[in-house]
Design a protein around this nucleic acid. Structure first.
Length: 585
RNA sequence: GGGCCUUUAGCUCAGAGGAUAGAGCAACCGCCUUCUAAGCGGUCGGUCACAGGUUCGAAUCCUGUAAGGCCCGCCA
């Protein structure tokens, strides 16, 4: 099914050609949703822009377009307003037909893309030997949602967890453990993740303070990267421990991601060096192998290099990222590679992409894209930390959100004198709490910093997960009360729009397609959130004004169908955000 | 020194070339004998950081300035 905006755009393009000839073929009619409902549903803004080119007044141009515009099957007669806006209002019969068409469609009218792409979404990426913390929250949630949207529209998505399982941190850790806790490196389960974190901190401290330790750590990295047995074994133990912990978080958040860490590319690193050398891009500078960059200078104003191979022979993450680009384009056949990584690494990605481009490793049809997001800050605007100043562990953060949701739910149940099982309470608290954490993050434009607030995300009113979940629950309440079988509303069941709030709701439901298409392209999940919030608002207005179960027949069935479509749209939309719905709350 | 990001209502944020700049929260005022009031309606609230420019039209694009944040050689 073609969305209204797509159909009307086509018709306007045809009208432009008919009115002004083939020269206008391919002209964008600039069709956008109306800025104000009193102007109708859509407005075409091209007449003003064409005035100069066609040497005529905008209103005259608009009139010619309208005279050639064939939309009697879709719209009321178009109106020309202001300087030359063409205002279009959808016919009730068209809306009703569109609703009937999506009623039987599981995808609610959102057609899969005609040319699916192989897309890699690189997200989450915690570090081995550390616990997942608040710093991994946004990448994990945003990356998952982007992957879900791209999968839904029909792309072949490979979700990759580029875990930090390689590099200097392991040199540090292994070197430290060899003296501090050798049994941890033997392969048996001697060390819990919490201990590892403590060891990591100790190792980091020694690394920063002790030059000798630093040198031995770097040597250990080289051992590891060259395949030394004892280093490899120690590394394996550390990775297994961490992996189990990560998986608990992913399971809880209902996130699938394939681990392919930095170590995966180890054997390909020397090829990167060779490739750059062959193309004379590689230069030796202060003992390191580097590529000088265009457009980047250091503090002294000299051209800045990207280090490919360190002076001790070790590689660093730029090298790994270059190897990954080659592997992903050549072996995985990726056409679009998305890096859901914090905005602080914009420089790094620009540099790596530049070098990959210079080396000819980015085929023309491949898009490399850093999908940046801002920092998580506390309510004081500073870095989000615990009261004692520690980094907030992701597990604790989720527990806190669920715990608060539970407390709130319990007091509500008590106030309403309801009887609910503990199982119900825990299940609702989990869905509400985790949904709130995800929604709060996703509902904000990802590029800006994000002020984290339990109170705001769990608020029952406003643009929050609980508000959306409640709208869904309301439909389920109608269903229970009326004993509704949504599959069998009757053979002649149809939607008839009458009340103003029904029109508003129906039109909004039909815009799902446009929103999802936009998110799949621009990767801003907050637009989907905004859509779902407005859908919930429009549903609540409808719910307030129009009784459903008590309505006379024909209207009753029509309204039930609107309820059903609303609930299904909410469920689908929330699922693309990684949020589950509830029958009761 | 260079690069990137941010600056819109008291607070948190939408808005990415169109008509009178929106929402939520907060504050205040209404609405439950009726499908869960976790709701709905209303009032209040703006020099879109500043200065130029492009355009028929700019919060939106360009240039500059200011403030804040992040990053910049052997960590990732």
């Amino acid at each position: 099914m073609l969305s209204a905006i797509a159909t009307l755009t086509q018709r306007l393009e045809q009208a432009l050609v008919q009115a002004f000839g083939d020269d206008l073929a391919g002209t964008d009619p600039v069709l956008v949703p109306a800025s104000n409902p009193k102007f109708g549903d859509y407005q075409a803004n091209c007449a003003m822009a064409l005035a100069k080119r066609l040497k005529d007044k905008p209103r005259a141009i608009a009139e010619k377009i309208v005279a050639n515009l064939a939309v009697t099957d879709i719209c009321e007669p178009p109106e020309i307003a202001g300087p030359g806006f063409i205002n279009l209002r959808l016919q009730t019969s068209y809306l009703e037909a569109q609703l009937a068409a999506i009623e039987g469609d599981e995808r609610l009218g959102v057609a899969p893309v005609t040319s699916p792409q192989k897309v890699i979404v690189d997200f989450s990426s915690p570090n081995i030997a550390k616990e997942m913390h608040v710093g991994h929250l946004r990448s994990t949630i945003i990356g998952d949602s982007i992957a879900r949207v791209l999968e839904f529209v029909g792309h072949d998505v490979l979700r990759l967890n580029h875990v930090g399982d390689w590099g200097t941190q392991f040199g540090m850790l292994i070197t430290h453990l060899r003296t501090a806790c050798p049994e941890a490196l033997t392969g048996s389960e001697h060390v819990a993740i919490g201990d590892l974190v403590a060891f990591y901190k100790q190792a980091k401290q020694r690394f920063d303070e002790d030059e000798d330790f630093k040198a031995r750590s770097r040597a250990a990295v080289v051992e590891l990267q060259s395949g030394d047995d004892s280093a490899r074994q120690a590394w394996q133990v550390l990775c297994d421990q961490s992996r189990q912990e990560f998986q608990k978080i992913y399971d809880r958040l209902d996130i699938r991601v394939t681990e392919r860490g930095e170590s995966f590319y180890n054997t390909l690193l020397s090829d990167v060096v060779e490739g750059l050398k062959t193309q004379s891009l590689l230069v030796e500078d202060q003992g390191a192998q580097v590529v000088f960059l265009d457009g980047f200078t250091n503090k002294a104003g000299d051209p800045q290099p990207l280090i490919i191979q360190k002076s001790n022979g070790g590689f660093n993450y730029a090298t790994t990222d270059l190897a990954a680009i080659r592997y992903r384009t050549q072996q995985d056949g990726a056409e679009r590679i998305l890096y859901v990584v914090d905005a602080g690494q914009a420089n790094h990605f620009n540099q790596v992409f530049q070098v990959a481009g210079k080396a000819g490793w980015v085929p023309e049809k491949v898009e490399l894209s850093h999908v940046p997001f801002g920092l998580v800050q506390g309510e004081d605007g500073k870095k989000f930390k615990t009261r004692s100043g520690e980094t907030v562990r992701l597990k604790d953060l989720l527990d806190e959100a669920v715990g608060r949701a539970r407390t709130d739910l319990e007091s509500r149940i008590a106030a309403e004198e309801r009887q609910e099982s503990d199982e119900f309470i825990q299940s609702v608290a989990e869905t509400v709490g985790l949904g709130a954490v995800k929604y709060a993050d996703l509902s904000q434009n990802r590029t800006s910093n994000y002020i984290f607030s339990y109170d705001k995300m769990l608020a029952l009113q406003g643009n929050t997960a609980p508000y959306l979940l409640y709208a869904y629950v309301r439909v389920q309440g109608i269903s229970r009360k009326g004993g509704i079988d949504w599959q069998n509303l009757g053979a002649d069941a149809a939607i008839h729009l009458e009340d103003e709030s029904e029109f508003a709701l129906a039109k909004h439901i039909l815009q799902l397609d446009e929103v999802i298409t936009e998110v799949a392209q621009d990767l801003y999940p907050n637009r989907l959130c905004q859509y779902l919030f407005e859908l919930s608002q429009k549903f609540n207005q409808f719910y307030d004004r129009c009784s459903v179960l008590q309505a006379e027949e024909r209207q009753r069935t029509s309204r039930l169908m609107l309820c059903d479509l609303t609930a299904r749209t909410l469920q689908l939309g929330l699922s693309l955000l990684g949020i589950q719905v509830l029958e009761r709350m």
